[in-house]
């Protein structure tokens, strides 16, 4: 970095802290949940014992679940605050996470681009795969969280639910968690960090700042919109300080490493 680049804010501190909570709790849930799912494999047994056995990992799993519910609630609160402030744009339009016709068009354009049949679509603030990641967390936390709560408090839920619901909960909790882990540790990692243009890592979620050239390349429609509306300067950021860049590397690479090791073990078990 020559220091002459211009930076713009993409994620504010609240976004970054919440995503930090997602990383922390998701890795924690995966590390304490997978040893139980894979209790009959050597690595599952090893990991469970290293982390203190199934009862200790059980407590830790619930601790990370509480963090998950906490960030879920904090995010809903954040959305509610924006609504109360009158920012209707979060439900539709370029700032919204809600899938819109443009996203489907861009998906088709993107596939054409993959095949060399057209130019790269001009993505806005949120590309369609980023929206998918966002809703995947929404869906995942709801489904895994609800089934997890059932299994956490079976005696309570059995007061008004039939017992077979716990059998269903086990399947859903386990399979949906596998989907979440498989998706995050392969697709999300590739799309945001490991694809050659970003390799080995995109630190923007940790630093919050995106460099101007990359901003124009990755989110040209958003850059253009801010420029036309004259709001670009309001998003100007100082270059990420060295400590923040180092922090991003340490946390980012650690998270990537844990995820890649875990998905490697899962794939190895599935194949072997």
């Amino acid at each position: 970095m020559s220091g002459s680049e211009r930076y713009y804010f993409r994620f504010n501190l609240y976004h970054r802290i919440l995503h930090g909570m997602v990383i922390f709790s998701f890795l924690g849930l995966a590390l304490t949940g997978l040893p139980l799912k894979y209790a009959e494999t050597g690595w599952g047994r090893w990991l469970s014992h290293v982390l203190g056995g199934p009862f200790t990992t059980g407590y830790l799993h619930r601790f990370f679940a509480v963090i998950t519910f906490l960030y879920f609630g904090l995010h809903l609160g954040y959305v509610a605050r924006l609504v109360l402030k009158g920012q209707r744009g979060i439900f539709w339009g370029p700032d919204s996470m809600v899938p819109q016709p443009r996203d489907f068009v861009q998906l088709a354009q993107h596939v054409r681009y993959f095949l060399g049949l057209g130019p790269r679509p001009r993505f806005g603030r949120w590309a369609y795969w980023e929206k998918f990641d966002y809703w995947a967390v929404f869906w995942g936390v709801s489904i895994i969280g609800a089934s997890g709560l059932l299994l956490w408090f079976p005696a309570f839920f059995a007061r008004f639910l039939p017992g077979w619901i716990f059998n269903v909960a086990i399947i859903i909790h386990s399979d949906e968690a596998l989907l979440a882990v498989a998706f995050i540790f392969t697709v999300h990692f590739f799309n945001t960090h490991l694809r050659p243009e970003k390799f080995p890592m995109d630190p923007v979620i940790f630093t919050g700042r995106v460099e101007e050239e990359e901003f124009q390349r990755e989110h040209p429609a958003e850059y253009e919109r801010l420029r036309v509306e004259g709001r670009l300067e309001a998003h100007r950021a100082d270059p990420p300080p060295l400590w923040l860049r180092n922090f991003a590397r340490v946390v980012g690479f650690s998270a990537l490493a844990i995820g890649i090791i875990l998905i490697g073990l899962i794939i190895g078990t599935a194949l072997g």
Partner: peptide, 29 residues
């Protein structure tokens, strides 16, 4: 109930991973 739950969950897993797997494979080059 369990059979169809498992079927749905497996379809969801295989479907999602296949679509995005293909997406990734096409995107990589």
């Amino acid at each position: 109930k369990l059979y169809y739950t498992y079927l749905f969950m497996t379809a969801l897993l295989v479907g999602t991973m296949s679509l995005f797997g293909l997406h990734t494979v096409l995107w990589f080059p």
